[in-house]
Write a protein that binds this DNA or RNA. Structure first.
Lengths: 191, 191
DNA sequence: CAATCAAACTAACAAGTGTTAGTTTGATTT
DNA sequence: AAATCAAACTAACACTTGTTAGTTTGATTG
């Protein structure tokens, strides 16, 4: 992967994502961000071109990661249940690596401007692929014949909230979480 | 229930909640809100005492509704699965009645100031009660012996996201949604 | 008719907003 | 030693923010 030493720009983006998670994009000022970095607000502009630009960098890169991961899963030859497990693992992995960014992706996407349409396109594409996996599973009799949107909504809601939960489990092994989550999401809580 | 004609203050709060859902508390200005009401920003202050005050009114009332509903369910004599179904129904009902307010409850609670501690207390209390229901279900053998926090997290994430989903189902009968959701959350998607 | 009152208005404020321009610093390279 | 360059700085800008003070309006009440 990419293991260059972190550039100053990346450091700003990472710090911004942390603040955005705590207070939301709109409530974080350039002076807040600068102060957290130990510099003055104007100095930020040596590295980034605008506040908007920071948000874009945070959100779009993650959204593209999801798009790519989902495309691989969808086009694979695995059975439905296996695909669902892979989607769960994909969310756990991406979220574990960037809980701050996931908060922005979930809560601040509407403040994208230039890239809003692109983001929405990626998200719709992702959801459509997910829905197709579920529909195919129903058709093949692998999963229950309940409303596909209800199942999509239920699973995706849990996966999208992972950024809130993962930081609370300090000693977290992503593989274990993905497995425990798969059990509950796929088989329910009933005995 | 309360079927007085809506006061101007309530109208402001309802309109604010709608805007808060779209853009978040911090991104909505008093001028945005006034313009949506067809008046000038200063006129709002004939009815409310501050922007903060609006947020408080939106969030605290809903949080108290949840606290009360949960207390009733917890202290009832029903079996675990029945209690879970009632918790699901509670969320569907409250969210159906106020999808805008639920957005603020989920996303803008950190901008509460005076009432932040009180809100957090209500939320912890709610989550503790929920967790106890699950733990009792495990002890009595009614539900699987998986990590209670994983189950709590999974179910609660879905229920907390309902405000995003309910508005998309125009022809929604709350009872039907609650039932369909119960099936998926309790029994999973596996056949 | 006079008095009251809810609810709007205009005008203004102090503080905070993102951003730009131009400059300084101090290390690295030629 | 001179030149380069990344990265900080100060100062300022035009605009937006939540909010207050004081006033006007038009309907309802005594």
């Amino acid at each position: 992967m990419n293991s260059q030493p972190e550039t100053r720009k990346q450091e700003i983006i990472r710090t911004a994502a942390k603040l955005f998670k705590e207070k939301g994009y709109s409530a974080v000022t350039m002076r807040d961000l600068a102060s957290e970095m130990g510099i003055k607000a104007a100095s930020l502009y040596n590295h980034i071109s605008s506040k908007q630009d920071i948000l874009k960098e945070i959100i779009i890169s993650i959204a593209e990661e999801f798009t790519e991961g989902m495309a691989n899963i969808r086009s694979s030859n695995h059975k439905t249940i296996e695909k669902l497990k892979q989607v769960i693992a994909l969310h756990v992995e991406i979220t574990s690596n960037n809980t701050y960014g996931m908060a922005s992706l979930n809560n601040d996407w509407m403040h994208l401007e230039e890239q809003l349409d692109y983001y929405l396109q990626l998200r719709h594409n992702y959801e459509d692929n997910f829905r197709e996996i579920i529909k195919n599973g129903i058709k093949s009799g692998e999963i229950i014949d309940e409303n596909p949107d209800t199942m999509l909504f239920s699973i995706l809601s849990t996966l999208r909230s992972l950024y809130l939960w993962i930081p609370k489990k300090e000693d977290l092994v992503p593989e274990e979480l993905a497995q425990s989550l798969s059990k509950v999401l796929i088989n329910g809580v009933n005995k």
